[in-house]
């Protein structure tokens, strides 16, 4: 169970959030957490890689320069790690395999005043917010609720394949059910949750970034 005293700022960092997601069979990229800038010689990961500062204070990493993408060699990795170490002293660093996909989605949860926890499905990752391309339901999701959600956002138009872009409907359904299950099982303290982006491909849906905000 999530304990509030483990996250005094109210934010469950990306590393811990992903660990919780994996408990509910939500796929996350292969990765390793590096503490105190102890840079290991050999990482059991495949290039290209991503280096991210892990903190309980940073909400939008890409806006604060705490992430370096597209690392393709040992020397590039070393310099990236050093740079992040310098910029975010004392924090941990997450090194992950970079995920490529065909489309990005966002899955989220918010505790609403009226209806308890509600779930959101959105298209386009960061663009979901700009276009308002999102759909909500309570966590008591049925199969028909999920297909309605998908059709209410533009994600639905890609389900049958669009100009060579293929995504897996089953994997999106699984991810939504898993998040609903997480909330029903240990959602008591969860104020909101973001999986953004959830990167979609023909046969996978991977939570590339994720965060949870907790409160009593």
């Amino acid at each position: 169970m999530i304990r509030i005293e483990d996250f005094p700022n109210g934010l469950v960092d990306e590393y811990n959030t992903k660990a919780i997601l994996r408990k509910y069979s939500i796929r996350t990229p292969n990765g390793i957490l590096i503490r105190d800038c102890n840079i290991p010689d050999n990482l059991p990961l495949r290039y290209p890689l991503v280096v991210k500062a892990v903190s309980t204070n940073l909400l939008h990493k890409s806006e604060s320069g705490a992430v370096i993408l597209g690392i393709s060699s040992d020397s590039h990795l070393k310099s990236a790690l050093e740079e992040i170490c310098k910029r975010f002293q004392g924090g941990s660093i997450l090194v992950e395999e970079m995920i490529r996909g065909n489309f990005e989605a966002i899955i989220g949860v918010k505790r609403s005043h009226s209806f308890g926890h509600v779930m959101m499905l959105g298209s386009g990752g960061i663009f979901a917010e700009i276009f308002g391309d999102v759909s909500f339901r309570t966590v008591d999701l049925s199969k028909s609720d999920i297909s309605e959600m998908m059709n209410e956002v533009s994600l639905g138009k890609f389900l049958g394949g669009y100009r060579g872009i293929k995504i897996s409907k089953e994997k999106i359904v699984e991810a939504l059910y898993s998040v609903a299950n997480l909330i029903k099982t240990e959602g008591e303290l969860i104020e909101s949750l973001d999986i953004n982006p959830l990167i979609l491909s023909e046969n996978d849906a991977i939570a590339v970034d994720a965060k949870i905000v907790v409160s009593k």
Binding site: S112, G122, A128, M149, E191, S192, V213
Partner: peptide
């Protein structure tokens, strides 16, 4: 202030809309 994407998009109107359909 909640600042997660979902929280900022979860307007009363959108949530009501989805839940009513459900």
């Amino acid at each position: 202030a909640a600042s997660l994407h979902t929280a900022s998009m979860a307007t009363d109107d959108r949530v009501t809309d989805g839940v009513f359909r459900q």
